[in-house]
Design a protein around this nucleic acid. Structure first.
Lengths: 256, 256
DNA sequence: CCCAATTTGTTCGTATGTATC
DNA sequence: AGATACATACGAACAAATTGG
């Protein structure tokens, strides 16, 4: 080790640096999803490092959802567009440590969803409206056993996911779906899906039905108002049980 | 379609499965940040796999920000709380491919920030208010060269980051800081920080100053109204230039 | 159906770097 | 300074998956 030659932080491991370099490379060249990166052996030659080092770098990129690899001829490492499911899972990791409350989640939902609905009023096709109605039907009574209860809760969240998917704003849609996912984790992780007040549940369903009507009619103001009330209802339904969500990582359902 | 032999999807690579198993393990045991995972050699023994495989698994967890490793005696792999900077970078990867517009970003900011400000009115200490005022001062005129311009824009975003950090709601705070980060990327990636209308900039500063006054006075309504106008001003300042943000990955400034 | 080529996936042995005592 | 304990990196070999002949 020579004297103090202004070492510029070689503190990152080699795989991390290689991963960063490849990422920058992809960005500079403007490579698109589906395009193939150089093969392992080419990367070994290019970076002058051992196979294991290069492989670890690729794993880092893979964990971020930025590349995917396949074996065999025609295989290799490919640029991959980060899937929403993976982005949600990665972000969920962050909030695993954050100690969120139901109030935190519902505050955001109450801010965003009414606005989303207002923006969609009069802009949905019949097919889209039908999908929303199907989600409502799937979450409708009668309730039978606890499993059925859970399924209907999931369907109710699906309604909001559908709505979010129709958002013109990808950011808004993502945040709403993420919140719904977090909420779903909370409800299944604890027994919050059971013992719901039937009257409140009915009320929620009525809100959703009226919302679809307002969307079809193109009445933005009414859509906003209805969803605002729906959020309040749902929040009330959850409140005064556990105040803290269970600490869990979100499952990453993604293969790519 | 081959016969249905209920293959249990061994399609994931071993490192991925090991990483998933360790993650689950950490969760089940409720391990906290700072606690040490078993050493490499112990993991090798426990999973019955080679060193390289285990190392790749650890890299996967490291890339997600869930663990960090140190060399030397007393070193090892440690549970790590995902840092906000890393979460922002990972989420930024997702939106790299999403083709966001400035309007998308500002729509969300306009929805969230006024509400945040309203919630903070009357609840900030003098020290916190002073930090906000410092950020305003740093972004104030006079403008000299382009570099100075960029620095003042950064300070302006810092004002919003400070505000978000004071939010009682971690979710709200995160989203706002993420949006500010994305906006910062956009403004530096293209020339949007230069050629700003001085009158509009002045107007933005006046809004921020008035906001701090409202916060100090505990006037939630005024805070909301002021920030709403500030958002509109900022949006106007950006609009009618490039409609699409540059496609860039967010830099991950994090070491841990 | 098998065989061969190609590319990632996995293993093992060894050596090096780094931080603590 | 030296010993120790740990991650880090290298290299060569072998295994598995996929494609095409």
């Amino acid at each position: 080790m020579p004297p103090v030659t202004t070492r510029s932080e070689p503190r990152q491991s080699r795989p991390q640096r290689v991963a960063e370099a490849i990422k920058q490379w992809v960005m500079d060249e403007g490579w698109q999803p589906g395009q193939r990166l150089p093969s392992e052996s080419e990367l070994i030659a290019r970076f002058g490092m051992a196979k294991g080092t290069i492989r670890e770098a690729i794993r880092i990129l893979e964990a971020q959802g930025l590349v995917a690899s396949r074996t065999g001829p025609g295989g290799g490492v490919f640029v991959h567009r980060v899937s929403e499911a993976r982005a949600i899972a990665l972000l969920g990791n962050y909030f695993y440590f954050a100690d969120l409350s139901l109030d935190d989640i519902y505050q955001l939902r109450s801010l965003l969803e009414p606005e989303l609905a207002a923006g969609l009023a009069g802009r949905l096709s019949e097919a889209q409206l039908a999908r929303l109605e199907a989600a409502i039907a799937a979450s409708a009574p009668p309730a039978v056993d606890p499993d059925d209860e859970a399924a209907r809760h999931a369907a109710s969240l699906a309604f909001h996911a559908e709505l979010a998917a129709m958002a013109g704003n990808p950011l808004l849609g993502f945040v709403i779906r993420f919140l719904a996912e977090m909420l779903g984790e909370v409800t299944v992780a604890r027994g919050l899906h059971s013992a719901t007040d039937p009257a409140l549940w009915e009320r929620g369903l009525a809100c959703q039905t009226e919302l679809v009507a307002a969307l079809r009619a193109g009445d933005a103001e009414r859509a906003r108002a209805v969803l605002r009330e729906h959020m309040a209802t749902a929040h009330r339904m959850m409140r005064d049980r556990e105040a803290r969500p269970a600490r869990r990582f979100l499952r990453d359902r993604v293969r790519g």
